[in-house]
Design a protein around this nucleic acid. Structure first.
Length: 293
DNA sequence: AACGATCCCTGTTGGC
DNA sequence: TGCCAACAGGGATCGT
């Protein structure tokens, strides 16, 4: 039921929407597989995958022959440092997935990027919906990209209440929208934003700038807790058709979700039916009793 | 500057 | 049984 219609009795379902935990799991996998390796040959087969450079050929040329120095992450962006100072910037978008496989293994449908590595394996990027991308950017290009507008990483940098208060000061947009914005704090998507707000007892429509420092302290703690748990559980795979982890395993965080996709089901804390509202064209699930403005 | 709307895209599904 | 419109999502872009 990946991306299917959401009905009250039917959890949205469910695929693996890559948010910070899923990207961090991917980063760890790539760190092991790519560090020290050279991208011997690079082939991109879908123009949207290369849209952050001027052409497919430019990405291929700029990455070809480069050696991987480090694999980092900020928010939901993967930052693969290369030996000439460039960075291979990648985003999984809605449906992107990296894997490292033997060239003999059949390539899955929607494989839009392949890099042959100098150890004989192949780095692949599969992305049916093409919301993801792979780019070759230098320092200056990164400074002008979306990466530069990211707020502190929600897990790696863990902004505390005072930092959140500063970043949300005067903002009247709903806190849910601000958490999705990636500017005040980066890495949260629709699932973990809802989960963190529920854990913190904050209504998603509360204007961000109106949250007291004590409530922001609860939010900061809740964000780290939901992300930590999701990373430990291998991320959230929402249905067994969609694959999630780079090694092919499904994540096991789904059972831990307390509000996302649970419209009309009883709140696990108080029994009140979970409600759904649309904020910034995204579903927000919340408990009207536990979460207040 | 901040905010909201719109667009991109495809697999899945509800409704007919 | 089969067809098709609706829907989900992150981020870039644009209008107000």
């Amino acid at each position: 039921m990946t991306g299917g219609t959401v009905t009250p009795s039917d959890p949205p379902g469910v695929h693996d929407l890559p948010e910070l935990p899923e990207v961090e799991i991917t980063r760890r996998h790539l760190e092991r597989a790519l560090t020290g390796r050279a991208l011997a040959e690079v082939a991109i087969t879908h123009p949207r995958t290369a849209r952050h450079n001027s052409s497919i050929e430019e990405v291929e040329t700029r990455l070809r022959g480069r050696r991987v120095v480090e694999v980092g992450r900020k928010g939901k962006f993967l930052l693969v440092g290369l030996d000439d100072g460039q960075t291979m910037v990648a985003h999984l978008g809605m449906s992107g997935r990296f894997s490292v496989a033997s060239p003999e293994e059949e390539r899955p449908a929607h494989t839009h990027f392949v890099a042959r590595l100098d150890d004989g394996t192949e780095l692949r990027f599969v992305d049916p919906r093409t919301f993801g991308f792979v780019a070759a950017l230098d320092e200056e290009e990164i400074a002008g990209s979306g990466v530069a507008r990211l707020g502190p990483d929600a897990w790696g940098e863990r902004p505390e209440a005072a930092a959140l208060a500063y970043r949300l000061r005067g903002r009247i947009a709903p806190i849910k929208a601000l958490l999705l914005d990636q500017g005040p704090i980066s890495g949260l998507g629709n699932i973990y934003a809802d989960e963190a707000l529920h854990r913190a007892g904050i209504h998603p429509q509360t204007p961000g700038g109106e949250l007291s420092e004590s409530r922001l302290a609860m939010l900061a703690d809740a964000i780290v807790a939901v992300l930590e748990q999701a990373i430990e559980k291998g991320g959230t795979t929402l249905d067994d058709l969609a694959y999630l982890l780079p090694d092919g395993r499904a994540g096991e965080n789904l059972e831990r979700l307390r509000v996302y996709g649970r419209e009309e089901l009883p709140c696990l804390a108080c029994g009140t039916p979970i409600e759904r509202v649309v904020i910034r064209a995204r579903s927000s699930f919340f408990c009207p009793t536990c979460q207040t403005r």
